[in-house]
């Protein structure tokens, strides 16, 4: 076995040993959410933290980011305990994007992003030429060049989030932690932001951890997943491994949500009554199954009820050898399907 402890870790490696997170409640003791967490974050990788509401995702992020004290165990950054870093040293290594409300509406975008330079500037925060260059680069990285003179208050939610990310980029930390950076955003901004973070990880070698409810995007773009739930604790792994180990399927099982490994998506558990055999190709098969499951039919290999879809306007349903009906659209097919008398 290789003794990794003798080799210095590359910058940006963050790991936890037997970490306990939660809240101190003053004299009444503490509320432990998780105990004995051990994990590592790696440079050049985008990790997504998934879990139901109330699982403690924000607490975990804040503890790793150092803004909330851990209850036990230790966090290490570049082989040095995180607690031993001075404020300014830590500020140059771990950047945060939180969901906290800010009062920065009266700052133009450029000045907001320039706040990210604070750990690098002197006592009065005067920006040097190098600082200004980095600020412009960060603004360009999130695509807000056109808006750099605009007040933060006048930005859309998506642009505001991008400005906050630009601020974190300007902070030049090897580690970047983001708490639900895509919450409240429309689809376009969500995809843009996750794409941007993925690029930061792969092209600039940043270590990125973000919590999100955007499951589909997370499955597409993240290198690793962290699944956090009160029942099973923290499960870490490469996306595909977690799919096949069934861990993704269990994540929301308590809430009646299942993971469909065939399509890579989560969906509610539909009450399944009847089975039906489907004959179709590719995309048509996928959407036919989608329509069937939503309406209480479970697609199966063999069943007396059979559906054949040749084209989006050619549906043919048979029961054994008797033809039941034909349909020319999904709408007509579903209406007719519902009118089949319940055989049981």
């Amino acid at each position: 076995m290789v003794q990794t402890a003798h080799f210095p870790h590359p910058p940006g490696v963050l790991r936890a040993e037997h970490l306990a997170i939660g809240y101190r409640l003053g004299r009444r003791g503490e509320k432990r959410l998780y105990d004995q967490l051990s994990f590592a974050l790696h440079p050049g990788e985008l990790t997504c933290l998934l879990g139901p509401n109330g699982a403690g995702k924000s607490t975990l992020l804040r503890t790793i980011g150092g803004t909330q004290a851990s209850l036990d165990g230790a966090l290490f950054l570049e082989d040095r305990e995180l607690k031993k870093f001075r404020e300014k040293e830590r500020a140059r290594r771990i950047g945060l994007v939180l969901t906290d409300r800010t009062m920065a509406g009266g700052l133009p975008v450029r000045e907001l992003v320039a706040l990210g330079r604070q750990p690098h500037t002197g006592f009065f925060g005067r920006l040097g030429r190098e600082d200004l260059r980095i600020v412009e680069e960060a603004i360009a990285a999130v695509g807000l060049e056109e808006k750099s003179e605009v007040y933060v208050a006048e930005l859309s939610d998506g642009e505001r989030q991008k400005a906050m990310i630009a601020r974190a980029i300007a902070q030049e930390c090897p580690v970047l932690l983001l708490d639900e950076p895509t919450a409240f955003l429309d689809v376009v901004s969500r995809i843009e932001i996750l794409n941007l973070l993925h690029r930061l990880a792969t092209e600039h070698g940043k270590t990125i951890l973000l919590s999100t409810h955007d499951l589909e995007q997370a499955l597409l773009l993240s290198d690793r997943l962290w699944l956090l739930s009160r029942e099973r604790g923290l499960e870490c792994g490469v996306v595909e491994d977690l799919v096949f180990s069934g861990a993704l399927g269990r994540l929301f099982s308590r809430n009646g949500i299942t993971f469909d490994a065939g399509s890579g998506s989560f969906r509610p558990e539909f009450p399944v009554g009847k089975t039906i055999a489907v004959q179709a190709e590719g995309t048509l098969l996928f959407w036919a199954k989608n329509a069937l499951m939503r309406n209480g039919y479970l697609p199966a290999e063999e069943a007396p009820l059979r559906l054949e879809v040749k084209a989006p306007d050619q549906f043919c349903v048979t029961n054994g050898s008797t033809p039941l009906f034909q349909a020319a659209s999904f709408e007509e097919f579903i209406r007719r399907l519902k009118s089949i008398p319940d055989s049981r």
Binding site: R62, G65, G66, T67, E87, K88, R90, A91, R92, I94, G95, L96, L98, D100, R101, T102, M103, A104, L107, L115, G116, Q118, P119, Q171
Partner: peptide, 12 residues
Amino acid sequence: LLGERYAENLGV
């Protein structure tokens, strides 16, 4: 201006 947590993260 960004709130206490952000300020802390900026080394304050």
